[in-house]
Write a protein that binds this DNA or RNA. Structure first.
Lengths: 355, 355
DNA sequence: CTGAAAGCGCTTACAG
DNA sequence: CTGAAAGCGCTTACAG
């Protein structure tokens, strides 16, 4: 296993040497510990007002700000949080990230974001790097229902929270959107429009979202007393447009009588659009399609996609809050926060054609 | 001005105390400087092979990795790069970020990403935070043609590179897509289809992209010898869908005879779609529209958007490379790297209706 | 090849 | 209210 090491110190001066407490202290003719006390608002009151004012003035003039790394070494708090993403190009993540960042910034923390893909070995490697950089906690958007990486973090006693996706054991805090409720909304909407033969393209069952949306779908169709022959589930190999296209083809083959498709997410729904268009079928005239997530710009598709809006920004905020709480109270129990999803009705769902 | 300070040390143990060189050394019964030499591949050869092997084995078993923060303090290299984004929700940035991260990771660096909006004061604040955290350099995606923040960075001798957007002075390295060339491609394409009355919705002139795409447009229509009455430019107030809609309305009012619109980016082009639809006009039948950037999923719009693809991921990679070079050779001159854009013809452009 | 020592820039008990 | 000192966890000249 490879550890990272800083390369040997550079033979040049990378930039004008940054000012230190000592430099400033020399200039003002006080001890540098006094400067330190002034620079920190929490200890500023320990210093005489006029001295503090002088220090502040010089600091401002010289553009001095204390070295947080050195401070972190001393205080054992880096102020760094690691954020591990499976794929930052997936449009769900940027707003989650933005939410995380806002809350962290309020507490003087800053995120280190890494794109780790979905390989567990790589994720673990990346987490080791992050730990080597003394992150105080981790937000994982990569969680699976059974996740060795999560266990690894637990074993190392790193504060962790999972975002968007949950895990099975209940031993780590999670912030997720309520998938079961979302599928209830989805199926209710479709039934209300008059659909009685409904297909679901599920996400991977290894992910909580894939698993729970499927469970929610099944619960919902049962609650509506649909006969077993009148609903069907097919699993997409991944949350992608192409996997959605493939799964849609499969679903239509095994269940040609369906009039509506509930897709596990918007990317999958876009794959359905692709397949239907290829087949010369029209949405919603021939088949209704409903997505999940309300990704940016799905309202600009033709037809505009009916979908489930999840509270992405809040999800990030809440995850950051939970993590910060865990960091300050390590004994606190893991909690799962479920955010409420909303149905957004647009043009891709309509009453089924009369048979 | 507020500086951030770590809060007082927590009264609890945030997690099982992390191992240090000394802990490990005690366990193996060697001096901790020996462990240090072994942990760093570059100095490992200084240690006897059998000792090194023993150290490595124990390190592996105990999951030890050295504290990069402490090392950074000693070596004066944090291994941190600040990345300042105007808005991470804009789909151009995630792939740029991914490109940056890949190259940084190869050199053992890690990015700290901050969403700074477009307010210059806030950007400066955020940069101060980043400098306090000892970032070794900055990638700015927030540059304007005349940018006080850039001057601030220059004055502080921080290695900086600008990505996606350039600046006017030529005193900092930039990686951008060739906007002038892109507009040449755009106008060529439209002319080839037979359009002879073309409008351009420009981006804000304060941004290099807005300015240069407009310049490129004007050069291109002149090269094609379009008379002054046969082209027109309107400036959108921002790179957004709504600003595009508003600007489109304005353009169509002042230049109702146009048959094609070259939009400064895809968001603006989507705003054109919105406006045309409102007016009952059809694209491309009544009006052709061409975008810029080739954002994800614009191929799924109706009609699929003809646009200019820019090399986003490479832009990020190249920016990181340039910055790393500047860090290792501070005296190196600023360079501007222009990446070549490509025309992607889809369904939103067609021959104009015969008048 | 290995150890002992100095020092990176801070914070914070401890004196005075 | 201010200073002097110790120490956070490393790296690396310097001895031996």
């Amino acid at each position: 296993m490879a550890y990272f090491h800083p390369s040997r110190p550079s033979p040049y001066m990378p930039q004008r040497k940054r000012l230190t407490l000592k430099d400033l202290a020399a200039e003002i003719d006080v001890h540098y510990s006094t400067v330190s006390r002034v620079m920190n608002p929490a200890t500023r009151h320990l210093v005489a007002e006029d001295v503090a004012a002088r220090v502040l003035a010089v600091a401002e003039a010289r553009g001095f700000s204390p070295n947080r790394i050195a401070a972190g070494l001393r205080t054992q708090r880096s102020g760094l949080i690691g954020v591990v993403l499976p794929d930052i190009a997936n449009p769900v993540f940027p707003p989650i990230l933005a939410g995380i960042e806002v809350v962290l910034a309020q507490q003087g923390y800053v995120p280190i974001v890494v794109n780790a893909g979905s390989d567990k070995g790589r994720q673990r490697f990346v987490i080791d790097q992050l730990l080597g950089r003394q992150v105080e906690g981790l937000v994982l958007a990569t969680a699976e229902r059974e996740d060795p990486v999560l266990e690894y973090c637990l074993a190392r006693h790193v504060p962790v929270v999972t975002v968007n996706r949950g895990e099975g054991s209940g031993s780590v805090s999670s912030v997720v959107s309520d998938s079961v409720r979302a599928m209830q909304l989805t199926v209710d909407h479709l039934m209300e429009l008059g659909h009685r033969r409904i297909g679901h393209i599920a996400g991977p069952a290894s992910l909580s979202t894939g698993y729970l949306r499927r469970e929610g779908f099944i619960q919902a169709v049962r609650r509506h007393r649909l006969r077993r022959a009148d609903w069907h589930v097919v699993e997409a190999s991944s949350y992608s447009r192409n996997a959605g296209r493939v799964a849609c083809a499969q679903l239509m083959t095994v269940f040609p009588a369906l009039t509506a498709i509930a897709a596990a997410n918007d990317l999958v729904a876009m794959g359905c659009y692709d397949y239907l268009r290829e087949q010369g079928l029209r949405c919603p005239d021939d088949i209704s399609v409903i997505g999940h997530n309300d990704m940016p710009f799905v309202d600009a598709l033709t037809p505009p996609l009916t979908t489930i809006r999840i509270a992405v920004h809040e999800m990030g905020e809440e995850a950051a809050r939970l993590l910060l709480r865990k960091i300050s109270k390590p004994a606190s129990d893991p909690v799962t926060v479920q955010l409420q999803p909303h149905l957004i009705v647009r043009g891709s769902t309509a009453a089924p054609r009369m048979a």
